[in-house]
Every structure is written in structure tokens, then in C-alpha cells.
Amino acid sequence: GGTMNNKVVYNLHYAFYNMGFTVMRFNFRGVGRSQGEYDMGIGELSDAASALDYLQSMNQNSKHCWVAGFSFGAWIGMQLLMRRPEITGFISVAPPANLYDFSFLAPCPASGLVINGTADKVAPPKDTVSLVNKLHEQKGITVTHTQIEGADHFFKDEEAHMNPMIDHVSTYVKRRLGETTR
């Protein structure tokens, strides 16, 4: 986990890039050639905050700030969302609600999209649905939930799973951006 070199992270990166965002994908500490070692989410959250600080220093007049994460990165991204009020939207792909505690999302400060596959054995759909149902109870935000029929954790089938997942992400973000420019 924690790698920037899987197809989900790669495709999310380019979906945002193609919509005109300045984007960054990175390995968490101890993954690939990055320094350090796994820190049970504490250091990884610091890594994500540092990456966001860097992007913001390069784009000081940015109108929008979104966070997108996949699996473990979805958990870290949601924690970053709670600590950074400038984040106005999120994409959480295959959040592992069965493995990590998401109760810190009370209240969730921004609207976003949670997306998962119905055949995900790593982050079972029932746990994702439970997480989304808890988020739906909150006022002032809208959490959209989309399930990709038959997709596993990595959305391996390009045509049947990955492309539809990325299409949902792009459509959602463009709709949200359209709402803010009116």
C-alpha cells in the first residue's frame, strides 16, 4: 500500500490533470524509493500535508483545493480534509472502512464522492455503505456514493471498471466546479 504506481492512483492523477488542476501523486514514506518507514498513518498524514503545502506554495491563487485518495490513501486524504479548511471537495476511492477508523469524519467539512467496486474483497462494499450512511446523517454536506458493478479493489478491468470509475470522478468534479462558478 501507499504507492503512487498503481493504475487507480495514476488514473485519478490524470483525471484531475485533464480538468486543469495542478496535481501531485507521491509514495508514502517507506514505499518505493521514498525514505522512512510505515508510521501507522501518523507520518503518512504529515507526508500528505507537506505535499499539499508544496502545491499551495506553487499555486497561491488557486480557487479550488481537492483531495483524492485510493484505499489507504483515501483514509489519509479524509484525515487531511479534516485538518485543512481550504479543501473544498474530496474523492475517496475504495476507502478501507473495514480496516481503519473513519469516525473522525464527524462532522465531515466538505462534500465529496465515495466510489467503490461491488466485488472489492479488500474493502468490502458493506463497510463502505456503512461509512457513507454515517456521512449521510450529517447536515450541510452532500456525500455522493457510486458503486461500480463487478469491480474489484483495483478496478482491474480497464473497460468495464477503471474507465467508468474515472468517468464518474470526472463528471462529479466538473459538476461541482460548475456549481461554484454560477
Rank of each mutant, 00 (worst) to 15 (best):
A74G: 08
A74Y: 04
W75Y: 12
W75D: 03
Q79D: 02
L80R: 02
L80M: 07
L81Q: 02
L81Y: 00
M82P: 06
R83E: 09
R83L: 10
E86N: 05
I87K: 03
I87A: 00
I87D: 00
G89S: 03
G89E: 00
G89D: 02
G89W: 00
I91S: 04
S92W: 10
S92G: 11
S92Y: 06
V93S: 11
P95C: 07
N98E: 02
L99K: 07
L99T: 08
Y100I: 00
D101L: 03
D101A: 01
F102Q: 11
F102C: 11
F104H: 10
F104K: 10
C108N: 10
C108H: 03
P109K: 01
A110H: 03
S111H: 05
S111I: 10
V114A: 09
V114W: 03
V114P: 11
I115L: 15
G117V: 14
T118Y: 08
D120I: 13
V122T: 14
V122C: 09
P124G: 11
K126W: 08
K126R: 15
D127V: 12
D127G: 09
L131Y: 10
V132F: 06
V132G: 13
K134N: 10
L135I: 11
L135T: 11
H136Q: 06
H136D: 03
E137R: 09
E137N: 08
E137S: 06
E137K: 08
Q138H: 00
Q138R: 01
Q138F: 00
K139M: 02
K139H: 09
K139A: 07
I141Q: 02
I141K: 02
T142M: 06
V143M: 03
V143D: 04
V143G: 06
T144M: 13
T146E: 15
Q147R: 14
I148V: 15
I148E: 01
A151G: 09
A151M: 10
A151E: 03
A151N: 05
D152G: 12
D152Q: 08
H153P: 06
H153I: 02
F154P: 01
K156D: 07
D157P: 01
D157C: 00
E158T: 10
E159V: 09
A160K: 14
A160G: 04
H161R: 10
M162D: 06
M162Y: 00
M162A: 01
P164E: 01
P164F: 06
P164N: 10
D167N: 14
V169N: 02
V169I: 15
S170M: 15
T171Y: 05
Y172W: 14
V173R: 05
V173A: 03
K174V: 09
K174P: 07
K174C: 09
